[in-house]
Design a binder for these strands. Sequence first.
RNA 1: GCGAGGGUAGCCAAGCCAGGUCAAAGGCGACAGACUCAAGAUCUGUUCCUGCAGAGGUUCGCCGGUUCAAAUCCGGCCCUUCGCACCA
Length: 976
Amino acid sequence: MIIRRFSFSNPNESEGMLTRSTDIEAKWQERWYAERINEADRDEREKFMIIFAYPGVTGYLHVGHMRGFSYVDDIARYKRMQGYNVLFPVGTHATGNGPISLAKRVASGDEDMIDYLRRNGCPEDVIPELTDPLTVVEFFNKVYVEQYWRRFGFLADWRRFACTTHPQYGKFIQWQFRKLMDAGLLIQKPYYSPACIAHGPVAIDASETDIACGGCAETTEYTLMKFRCGELTLLAATLRPETVFGQTNFWVNPEVEYVKVVCGDEIWVMSRPCFEKMLYQKDRLKEVGTMWGTELIGSTCTAPMTGREIVCLPASFCDPNVGTGLVVSVPSDAPDDWVALRMLQEDEAACLRYGLDWDMVKAIAPIAIIETKGWGPMPAVEIVERMGITRSGDPKLVEAKKIVYKEGFHAGRMNQDCGPYSGLPVDKAKEAMKQDMLRANQADLFYDLSETVICRCGEPVVIKKVDDQWFIDYANPMVTELTKRHAEGMRILPTEYQTNVQGVLDWFRERACVRQGNWLGTRFPFDEKWIIEAISDSTLYPIFYLISPYVNDGSVRPDQMGTEFFDYVLLGRGDLDHVAKRSGVARDVLERMRADVDYWYPLDVNLGGKEHMTVHFPAFLMNHVAILPPEQWPRGIFVNWYVMSKAGKISKSKGGAQPIPGAAELYGVDSMRLYYAHIASPFADVEWDEEVLENYVAKMDRIMRTVEELSMMEESEAIEPIDVWLLARMNSRMASIVKGMEQLDLRNLAGEAYFEIPNDLKWYLRRGGSNGAVVGRALDMWVRAMAPITPHTAEEMWEHLGKDGLVANARFPCADAAEMSQAAELAEDYVRKLLEDVNEIVKVTKIAPKRVLVYTAPEWKEKVLQKAVALFRDNELKVPTLTKLVMQDEDIKSHGKEASDLARKMAEDLTRRSAEEVERMAVRFDELEYLRQAEGFLARELQCEVGFFDAADPEKVDPQGKSRFAQPRRPAIYLE
RNA sequence: GCGAGGGUAGCCAAGCCAGGUCAAAGGCGACAGACUCAAGAUCUGUUCCUGCAGAGGUUCGCCGGUUCAAAUCCGGCCCUUCGCACCA
């Protein structure tokens, strides 16, 4: 249970800041939206356009989704504070069957679904309305905008909201597809797709939106090898066509009734389940009879490619539901075959029963075909031996098969008995032999699913041939090349993906872009029976946000949005008057739209989850390259990783996710935004942990209190060293933040602003800092630095500090060179280090000091250091060189051995350090003076008297001669 | 299978690309102390091992290499997570 504890000020006092995060959020959101600071229009400033990949309308989102979304608002707010005119539009992706299946489940009274809706706060009276897919879309559009994005205070331009099922979006997509057609990127060819017999194409994926079971199934391509057997053609389905040279016999299940099917001038033999599946994949198949497996046993057939005559033998392991129900035997490399063959060879009775010549059966020997490192010539024989498998049906065979297949396929080579394929790696040989057999009409292809898949409607899912499937030709070499070259110059985060995307673009192939069936989406403009598929209609859309406000406010109607309209507005093509006349859109509206596109595009950042890396992002890039001119190609991609629950990915089914509004209420929006920004690098998954959230709640609480307390500090005239330090520190923090943000490093911003700066301020106070003006300056910078990530809290504090206007509109603090001082920071580090050293000595010696004496290094030692640094800079620092050099100085030389020892030590020490560190060592400040000014502080901290001496001071108090250990930046210490 | 990422002290998590400031930021937790009637909050210190002078030793998945110097670069291995197309 979280207790909101903003207890630092009395809520009844009108002067204090608001104490409840929900009050603060409501107050400032009202201000922002009333003043419309979220709305972005063209002006003189430099522009910055950022989006997150719009979410699919799949139901309620969870706290994990807010991670990426909030990054976009953080970045947008930072950029606007940097003076950019920032455009951050939002939308939703409703294409597909998410809304349809949700509506169906509601309509069917699915208890889980109703429960889920209730749990997420869906009003009772709305539930019955969610039986219509488009109502579902509109309902969730509202939920996303109001309960998620506005609730989190996003400065998104709501006027530009877009949804893929709105008619204007459809017009845009149709235009996009006409452009793809013009560019020659739409192609048509046959396609084998998973489909429900009743509903048409379905998606097979683990989320199982389309299907009832079988989410992990894959489409498997079998090579159907043709074995001539008299007038019949026996079909053996194999995944390993390269093993033809090792075939020794054919397997037939005597218990199975096979079907004879006419295909062209051949009569094919296969199992009935196979025939039924094949009907969806091949035309002109006709059943002409049946036969039992036993009828084939003993007859011979001719193997493809080798022309070898092999005999049909009985085998119980031939499953009519797998492949064709007929199997060709390669005992050298297939454990199943070897085991079955050996069983038969030992079973004279069986041979007799089937009328086989036992001697002939016994004479069959495996034929070695593949050489695999670490294996003998017959891997199947070997592994069966090793695993002690003796009979068909042994469960260990599955494992054996896996091992042999994996090893052979990836590490093996065809041996010298494989004709023209000898010496080829197995994976290459497989493809070559398959192609050769297909060309010679010795083989065909057959597709099947690796496991049973059932549609939501209860019908089985099959692989169905679609003759006229449309594809987007992402394999197009020209577009691929241009995209790859463009991507090299983009800002892509994480940087690993910048490299990786090159490979993804190479690998990206033709992609089916339309489908039939009951789907939400846009009609394919060239053939209305098709609906454009969900990924293909979400690639160019960022530019649509530049058009959407004009439709949303009624300046343009969807029916006015034809080819010429889009050509003019998006591409600047065509004559304005002509387009205005043809489309019926007002001339000035067209002009403004065109100017908007010119101004806002290209997109600066597209942020999306890691699931987009192999599909959405490459398609997004290639569509821009294919359709828009180069100056409008995207500039940046930001990939974010997930928030996981302990059980794995947060999901509806696995639970672990609480509704977003509930979490916002519980933890406060700003605490959550800070959590997302700070918990880990954006490029790593994090685990949702409520306790961790509570820590961020406490952190925000503490920060507000700190600001309130510090804001009450009195002004003062005197500027102490610690004041100089605080300003130097604040400025170097800002420098670090700004530098990090060049790479959109929000985590660095969060670390500096919410953790390091509070620590600096704490140190300032502990150190006795008390200058209200200096603190006021620090607070001013600090609150502005917090505005991007925790905007509500920042506004509240900004107001409390008596600042005019909104901090959201203020400039982000930049480091002021005049206030920066490396010496001031180093001097303070020096004091801190001294304190640590004294504590360490106390700890080790267990002395409770009555007095602490500190000795700074004498001037001659400083000279040695400076000479060493000079040599270091010239890359000439060596022990003898330094020794020789320092000994030329009479002052140093007078210290004799002590001087040469120091020179040696210093040379050794500095050569081991980095240039940066040496430069820090070289920075001089008056150590003794600085310590004296810190006397009060040190005495207070050490709870005893402290004294400081120059080690060269003849008047010094030095009972144990410790002063001789003093070195520059490292004073000697004596505890009394 | 193909492709990508990750393994850092009790836990989370930076650092690695650009080797030296690294016994390694920060956070959490734990322990001790201050404040308080008390609790919480807050503040201070400690939190790999050893050490009666600010030090030394052993650490960043494992093995080996490069280098004056490796958490960081190179090679191999083990473990692990994720993505893979009509799912967004």
